[in-house]
Design a protein around this nucleic acid. Structure first.
Lengths: 369, 369
DNA sequence: CGGGTCGATGTAATCGGTTACATGCCATGC
DNA sequence: GCATGGCATGTAACCGATTACATCGACCCG
């Protein structure tokens, strides 16, 4: 039961040790105590130069790598953040993770990802299984109330909600200003001379769809126009169908704002099929600025959201909350809002060069595909 | 120092406990030992009915959730797999994670994701920091040799390499049959009547690009055609430029195989600009079957890889390796190959209905967008 | 009635680190 | 010459679970 009877092979590449070396193996090989090894490795506390060298050599010889799990337990910190996401696709998902990963790596944090959650039970389960694995959680769940879902967990670790409208309730959150963006797009269409701006909205109950709808409604009301709305479900086919329906109305719209780019593409196909010209007969605006938007002809005017940046901000926010919890300071449950950027391309009138800004300080960018 | 002096509040929702309850809190509250609590919670070992009830009640009252980190340490298993990925984008990334996540959840595993690694040093660092956090690792790194990079880690946990051509070396791997796919596509173009099939390849040194190039070269050689090659870098702009170069050649190609769909789209724009018709003047084939491929007009013929399935298979493979390592059985370092599927759409000749299969048992599918 | 079996439970070692505290030593100051 | 202080180091108690082993009755059988 002494310290010396560990069975780790000496040579680094010769016999491959079945079990990796532990700190005690290193200690006994360097003929020092585990405390000294720990001090050397973490650069904490005073160590004699010669001791340091002996330890480093033993580390090299045994190719010792500290066991992060054990460290987490004794340090009461995992340096890991949990990420709980709904069923996301394509560019949105990859950009979000890219932003999270970048920000995490900067801070020496890891990402425990659990995606494709749609109902509340799954989210609860995911949250539960993260206890003791993470120092904080980033959660996105469009159909649910993030505050309630995160309530239990939020008492033990900080939670940041990522949502269409900012997390209501008492958890911190990052949200997209969907209403403001929709309003800016609608105003852009009105300013371009459209007399009847229609909206192809997303499914009712979906918080982002509702917010964009609200922004549209406010802007047309302000312009003294009657609202014209068709409902889609964010797919291309639904955008196509909705546009068809709009074209059959007695008073045809001369501009359409689709609640996302994918539906806008469907609408574009329907407009083309009807033999109408873009943007002369009908102007078209989308939302999201997916990569395809710039590749269409005419290239699509849209509201750009930098998803990667959204991820970075969320992680920065969470990292801050973890810090302040360590300092026993209560984290502020404030909700931070990211504003989309209006990107004007050929699907709307880009005559009127260099004129006035869009309202509400929404910045704007012209682009030629 | 007794068992009873823990300071956790009694009521579940009243005073919020700063520190979550531990198994000892539960034990003392239920007036049993920690062993019994553990037995109840894990359903292992015999427990009296009444004891079980008391424990469950205490668990509820304290809203106790086991600390997975601590459990990992004593069980020597983390139920987590590490995923190390290069800088991936869009659909490929999200589908891969989707497949991994689905397969992981089925098995009660978690995903520790670290993405955007490009050079070897970063990968090494990521691997090191995963020691003690994961039971196994899935690694994808196109420019590097997965075997060497994973060599050190592979001694302590199983590693599965995800790569363009299957991991050489002594680690298990899953690969895509890029060469075979490229060959099938080229053969499809030849069979459609093309006399001069050109190839827009990916960057040299990139293993997938090389494999697809090799498949193309073999197929044109077999058909007795001279190779015509331009090099791109997998971006749309490079596909556009490469196609331009091909069109300026004295002997213009009558079919083009682009090494991925993104470059094929660039090529498509160039062909259109030159006033040529697809597929009559020039037939065009891609690789990957990105969602946009079916939406183009003409819709793009391409080789489909089910990325999500690739992820699922990789995880299944790793899970198997983890199992067998627990049973002290050596895992086989075999490389599993996934074959892409030829999806024929309008950008190539889809006359010749219902004729012979493509060579080498590559399955085929016709589709109308 | 003694010994053996089985079921229910508790005690304490263990996983691999960190770290508060104790110890030993040497140099300094008075 | 002795108290003092600071550096270098070691010992052992955690972190929060699991689990091998010991214990203790109750019950059955010869």
């Amino acid at each position: 039961m002494g310290l010396g009877d560990h069975s780790v092979t000496t040579s680094p590449s010769g016999g491959r040790p079945l079990k990796p070396a532990t700190i005690r193996d290193v200690a006994s090989r360097a003929a020092v105590s585990v405390a000294s090894v720990s001090r050397v490795l973490n650069g904490a506390g005073p160590v004699a130069l010669e001791t340091r060298d002996r330890v480093m050599e033993a580390v090299r010889e045994l190719s010792y790598v500290p066991h992060s799990g054990a460290r987490s337990l004794s340090m009461r910190r995992t340096d890991t953040v949990g990420v709980i996401l709904p069923d996301l696709h394509g560019e949105f998902f990859s950009e979000l993770i890219r932003g999270l990963d970048r920000a995490a790596r900067e801070r020496g944090l890891h990402l425990l990802v659990s995606s494709s959650h749609d109902d509340e039970a799954e989210v609860e389960a995911a949250l539960g299984s993260m206890r003791g694995r993470v120092d904080g959680i980033i959660i996105m769940s469009p159909h649910l109330d993030p505050a309630s879902v995160a309530g239990g967990m939020a008492r033990s670790v900080p939670v940041v909600a990522l949502s269409g409208d900012g997390g209501r309730g008492d958890v911190a959150g990052i949200g997209i200003d969907n209403a403001g963006g929709a309003r800016a797009m609608t105003a852009h269409l009105v300013e371009g001379g459209a007399r009847r701006v229609a909206h192809i909205r997303g499914p009712s109950g979906h918080s982002e769809a509702e917010a964009r709808m609200a922004g549209y409604a406010a802007a047309v009301a302000e312009a003294g126009q009657p609202p014209m709305v068709e409902t889609g479900d964010f797919t291309q086919a639904s955008g196509y169908r909705a546009m068809h329906a709009l074209l059959e109305r007695r008073a045809r719209p001369d501009a359409v704002f689709a609640a996302n780019d994918t539906m806008a593409i469907g609408a574009l196909l329907a407009i083309r099929e009807a033999g109408l010209r873009l943007p002369e007969d009908i102007a078209l605006g989308g939302f999201d600025d997916v990569p395809m938007a710039a590749l269409l002809r005419p290239a699509l005017t849209t509201m750009r959201i930098s998803i990667a940046e959204l991820g970075e901000r969320a992680l920065a926010r969470l990292a801050g909350a973890i810090q302040s919890r360590r300092a026993a300071a209560p984290a502020d449950p404030e909700v931070e809002i990211v504003r989309p950027l209006l990107v004007v391309r050929q699907s709307t009138f880009n005559h009127r060069q260099g004129e006035g800004q869009s309202p509400a300080s929404f910045s704007q960018e012209r682009q030629d595909a």
